[in-house]
């Protein structure tokens, strides 16, 4: 029983980290209509900055630089590339982001090489014991930080002018623009927020129990895509639900791999999120909490 509980708690905390990334996808999508395939590289970039800087300037300043770096890169991608597309539409924007991802990821992979950079997080490899359940401190911390982050997002989107403006811009850009909301500003805020969330997720994805910063982190950020899709493309609460679902699924499938292997084959944990995504899309094409489009002919 305690094994099961441990898997569930691990899955939930991992799911919360995924939901940070998924929320980044959702925020960028609603604020600029871009499917940000470079998000995984931004996650890696945040963690990479912390890993190379923590020795010289200390861990917490390095975290600040990592968050700022990821936010600046996001804003720059939007301002320099997305806004200058020769033929702006969601399809070309998605492919543009694939191009950005190739460049960023290849360069980061080249810099990291075959080594696994350590993050130098102060919580190290310590664990927290609750009764007979053992959890890595990093995971517990991740869950706490994520809850705080989503609280802050809720406050931003429901209580501040900037956040309400962003929601208005997402709901109807031209009308919001006529009401005096500057779309360039809401878009930049969206990309910056997504970058910050990505960097936070990157830090938790690369600290214990993960070995450190390696290029594969960008790929595990891909696992947040099912989370985002599950929740609905334009919904931040949906991203949380989707993240938790995907986190639980992969933790349980990985945790009980030995029992599942005869039917599902080895390594099913990596595939499970995508299988869940395909099944959900089959039943609900706009995700669990996404807004539906109604078209009649």
């Amino acid at each position: 029983m305690s094994y099961f509980l441990e898997q569930v708690l691990n899955g939930l905390s991992y799911g919360l980290v995924l939901s940070l990334i998924a929320a980044g996808f959702a925020i960028v999508f609603t604020s600029t209509g871009v499917l940000n395939f470079a998000h995984g590289s931004v996650v890696l970039l945040g963690a990479y900055l912390v890993a190379v800087l923590h020795d010289t300037i200390g861990f917490w300043p390095a975290v600040l630089v990592g968050l700022a770096g990821a936010a600046v890169v996001g804003v720059a991608i939007n301002a320099l590339l997305v806004r200058n597309l020769a033929d702006p539409n969601p399809g070309t924007a998605a492919i543009l982001m694939l191009g950005v991802d190739i460049v960023l990821l290849t360069e980061l992979t080249r810099r990291i090489g075959n080594q696994v950079l350590t993050l130098g997080a102060p919580w190290g490899a310590s664990v927290v014991r609750l009764g007979d359940v053992t959890l890595p401190t990093g995971r517990v911390l991740a869950a706490g930080v994520t809850v705080v982050a989503f609280g802050a997002l809720w406050y931003l989107f429901s209580r501040t002018d900037l956040g309400v403006g962003m929601r208005a811009a997402a709901a109807d850009g031209p009308t919001a623009s006529l009401m005096g909301i500057r779309l360039s500003r809401t878009a930049a805020t969206g990309w910056a927020l997504a970058g910050i969330l990505a960097a936070v997720a990157g830090i938790f994805l690369t600290s214990f129990p993960a070995p450190g910063v390696a290029p594969t982190v960008a790929l595990s950020a891909f696992a947040a895509i099912p989370a985002w899709v599950l929740g609905g493309f334009d919904s931040v609460p949906g991203a949380v639900v989707g993240g938790l679902l995907i986190g639980l699924t992969s933790a349980l499938v990985t945790g009980y791999e030995a029992e599942l292997e005869p039917f599902l084959g080895s390594g099913f944990g990596e595939v499970a999120p995508y299988v869940v995504m395909i099944v959900v899309l089959l039943v609900r094409p706009s995700g669990l909490l996404g807004s539906k489009e109604a078209v009649r002919v």
Binding site: L35, A94, F268, L281
Partner: peptide
Amino acid sequence: LRGIYLGLATLGLVFVVRH
């Protein structure tokens, strides 16, 4: 599904087929 939504669903196919 249309456009990029289909792109996301097909993303899953690559992983499933590889598995």
